[in-house]
């Protein structure tokens, strides 16, 4: 088989719904796109611990504290599943972590916004994890076996993240005037960043066509964004809360909730490193890595004494 025949056979496999596994032939570009996507996804899980981690010690009661701890711990696990999925393609964990700590690697822009009140713990769970579920449910159908399996495992765990957040927003929206004000403020701050989280419009998303062609993604950014708005907007309004979009409306003909124009200047500003918390997030990861040095040293000493099999 020459290169063109191999590529045709590969695309036919994807077309038949087969999963590509380590050891199978794949185009270099497929491997490159997957390493890029999976490592960014892993970094997002790891950096995603920070906005919520900051509130663990300020939880209003023990139940909420246990729940938040468990959720943040899950995100650490998700990061691990994904680093391991990227390793099956030849990336090394140390390269990926180095890229994150040096500030070269990208991660989801949403985590560069600050969490300012306890109500953010509710809204992040409902909006941000809700958006992540839509994305990860799609990626569970990805054509690359290890990435698909990591997303199946992640998706099974995410429902609890979304529901604990939604429960809090519901309760606060029906609570005291002070709680209602607090949760409305959190909704106002997180709505647009979450809508942007799905990435640029399809016609401005350079990687989209090849990702869809090779079954890495099965829905476009705009399709996922529409699913999110349809799912969340009507329920927020039912709670007597408002969304910070004067143009938001339901379109009878399509059955879709349509948003007003998205501020893409803000999106690119944050992606390019100038969001409210970009520097703070990287500094926090560097500090965590430095603080963990003694654990790595202890393991290195242990490994020296105990040669591996």
């Amino acid at each position: 088989m020459n290169e063109a025949e191999r590529l045709a056979a590969f695309e036919a496999r994807i077309h038949r719904g087969e999963k590509i596994e380590p050891g199978d032939w794949m185009p270099e570009e497929y491997r490159r796109q997957l390493i890029r996507m999976i490592s960014q996804h892993a970094h997002s899980e790891i950096v995603g611990m920070l906005p919520e981690g900051a509130w663990i010690t300020r939880a209003p009661n023990l139940r909420r504290k246990l729940v938040l701890l468990a959720k943040v711990q899950d995100e650490a696990g998700h990061g691990q599943y994904l680093y391991h999925a990227a390793e099956t393609l030849g990336a090394t964990r140390e390269e990926m972590i180095e890229a994150l700590l040096s500030g070269r690697a990208k991660y989801s822009s949403i985590f560069n916004y600050p969490s300012q009140s306890w109500a953010d713990m509710g809204v992040i769970g409902w909006f941000v994890d809700g958006a992540a579920i839509l994305n990860q449910t799609m990626l569970a159908r990805c054509s690359y076996g290890p990435y698909s399996r990591a997303n199946i495992r992640i998706s099974a765990e995410e429902s609890f993240h979304m529901k604990q957040g939604k429960e809090q927003v519901i309760l606060m929206s029906q609570g005291t005037p002070g709680q209602r004000t607090m949760v409305q403020d959190a909704v106002n701050r997180w709505w647009w960043p979450t809508v942007m989280m799905f990435g640029p419009h399809d016609h401005e998303s350079p990687n989209s066509p090849v990702l869809i062609r090779w079954g890495i993604k099965t829905k476009t950014n705009d399709e996922l964004r529409q699913d999110f708005v349809n799912q969340v907007a009507p329920e927020v309004l039912e709670l007597g809360l408002s969304l910070p979009d004067p143009d938001l409306r339901y379109e009878q003909a399509s059955g879709n909730w349509l948003t007003g124009p998205i501020d893409w200047d803000e999106f690119w500003r944050v992606v390019k490193g100038n969001g409210p918390c970009n520097a703070e997030r990287i500094a926090a990861r560097r500090k965590a890595h430095a603080d963990g040095e003694w654990v790595r040293e202890a393991l290195a000493a242990y490994a020296e004494r105990q040669p591996t099999t």
Binding site: R63, K166, E167
Partner: peptide
């Protein structure tokens, strides 16, 4: 509380 069934959001809504 790690199980999504622990949260009764559908009933609340």
């Amino acid at each position: 509380y790690r199980d999504q069934a622990f949260y009764h959001t559908t009933t609340l809504m």
